[in-house]
Amino acid sequence: MTEETVLREDQQEIELEPVGAVKAEGQSVRVTRRTFLSGLGATGLMVTAPLAASASATTANGAAAATAGKTHVVLKVNGEEHDLGMLDSRATLLDTLRERLYLTGTKKGCDHGQCGACTVHVDGRRVNSCLTLAAMAAGKDVTTIEGLGIPTRMHPMQAAFVEHDAYQCGYCTSGQIMSAVALMKEPIGESDGEIKEAMAGNICRCGAYPNILAAVKQVRGQMKNS
């Protein structure tokens, strides 16, 4: 996506602040500005912008060679390496987890970064896996809900969600829990209001928010005391 991009009538340009650095071997390339397109342009964003990023990630790995439309991708998910072979470059991390690795605990609610159902951890930080191309996650540590705990050995956050009935249908729940766990390391403040704001990217249509808040608070309290 370049400066010359011609906007259609129903599109607008939004400039965002620097979003971080893409690390290449031996150097740090600062991503200074990204231009996003709204409306249908968002599709353009999904296909083109991350491709550029994945190209640099691939170079960074120095391993995979991108062929037309396909990229060799090795993903490390929940501590395990998966060689996905030549993967469709358009494949999002979300679809790759669900449809190729059969890790269906991560859910799709919108595919547009608007609901949080697809939240996973990449190198310990929460990301929307629907807005992340699989190739962008190559060489990083991906953690999904399955990697957090299993029914007989639950992560404290999972146990707290059960204890507080912090879900109804359960469809947003993986994303809520992944967000809540990542939150523990984020500097968000102490109050209920701050937790609620920090969790506001995870929509629960069943409205289990009061119980979700109770579960998150309990685990935060435990962590402080331990």
């Binding site: 890790l103 269906t104 605990g105 991560t106 999904t144 809900i145 399955e146 957090l148 705990g149 299993i150 029914p151 007989t152 639950m154 999972q158 146990a159 969600f161 059960v162 009935d165 879900y167 249908c169 359960g170 729940t173 993986s174 829990i177």
Partner: peptide, 9 residues
Amino acid sequence: DGPLKTTGT
């Protein structure tokens, strides 16, 4: 169903 819903299973 809590343990299933909170572990993605």
